[in-house]
Simulated scan of single mutants.
Amino acid sequence: MGQASEVTIELLLSSPTHRYEGRPGDGPLPATTREVFESIQLRAGLGVVGDRYFGQRAHRQASVTIMAAESLDWVQDSLGLLEHPLAENTRRNIIVRGMPIDEMGGSIFTLDSGSGPVSFVANRPANPCAWMNVTLAPGAFQALRGRGGMRCEPLSDGTLSVGPAELRMRHA
C-alpha cells in the first residue's frame, strides 16, 4: 500500500431497512432501530454487518457507500444554507473528511481507525437521488451530482470507528 494520509471518519451508518421508498414528496419511513454508530463491523464481500445490503448478491460490489464530508460542506455553501445538512440523511454508510472518494473510482484502498486496516475497492459512483431534495435541502440533489460518493466492496474483514483514521492507497 502507498503512503498514509490522515482522515477523519465523521459518521458510520448501518440500517437494516430501506427508509427512502415510494415518492420523495411523501417523506422517508421512520427509523425502526438505531442507525448511527460509533463503530461498525465489515465483512469481506458482504458489507456492513446489520445493514440492509449486507450479503445481498446484487449488491456485493456496492455494499458499502462512502462519501466525503466535504460534499455536505459544498451543499451548505452552494445552496446558502444556514445549517449544515445532516450526514445521516444521505444514507451513506461511511462519511469521511479528507478523502477524495469521488475521484477514486477503481482504486483499492484501506481505512484504519485503530483496529487494523479494512481494504476496499471503489467500484462505481453512488449517484444522489431526488430524496436529497427532501432530506437534506431543496436543490441538494443537483448540488451532489458528481459528489455522491462511491459504492465500494470490502475486501477484508474489520472494524471502523468514528474519529481519526489512516487512508492508504494502493500503488498502481
Rank of each mutant, 00 (worst) to 15 (best):
S15D: 15
S15T: 14
M132F: 04
L167G: 00
S71G: 07
G158H: 00
H59V: 06
R145K: 13
N89Y: 08
S39R: 14
V49N: 03
P125F: 05
S14P: 04
I108L: 01
T32Q: 13
L13P: 01
Q76A: 14
E10H: 12
S113T: 14
T110R: 02
E38K: 14
E88G: 09
D77M: 13
R23Q: 15
G158N: 01
P117G: 10
R91F: 12
L111A: 01
G27H: 05
L79K: 05
S71Q: 07
G45F: 15
H59R: 14
D112I: 00
G148F: 11
A4Q: 03
A126C: 15
G50P: 02
H59F: 15
N93E: 10
G80I: 13
W74N: 05
E166F: 07
R151V: 02
H18G: 11
G22R: 15
A31K: 09
D102I: 05
G139Q: 03
F37M: 10
E6R: 08
S115K: 10
G27M: 11
S63L: 05
H18D: 15
N89I: 00
A87M: 07
T90C: 08
E70R: 07
R145M: 13
A68W: 04
M67I: 15
W74S: 05
F141M: 09
G146W: 03
S39E: 14
T65E: 12
H171Q: 10
L29D: 11
E35H: 04
A130Y: 10
L167Y: 00
P128F: 12
A68K: 01
F37N: 08
L72A: 08
N127M: 14
E10N: 11
N123C: 13
N89Q: 14
R124P: 05
I108W: 00
M132Y: 01
E166R: 12
M99T: 02
P125H: 08
L86T: 10
P128K: 07
M132S: 01
C152H: 00
P138A: 06
L72N: 07
V96G: 02
V162S: 02
M169R: 09
G146S: 06
A130L: 11
R92K: 08
E70N: 11
G114L: 05
E21Y: 05
H84T: 12
V75I: 06
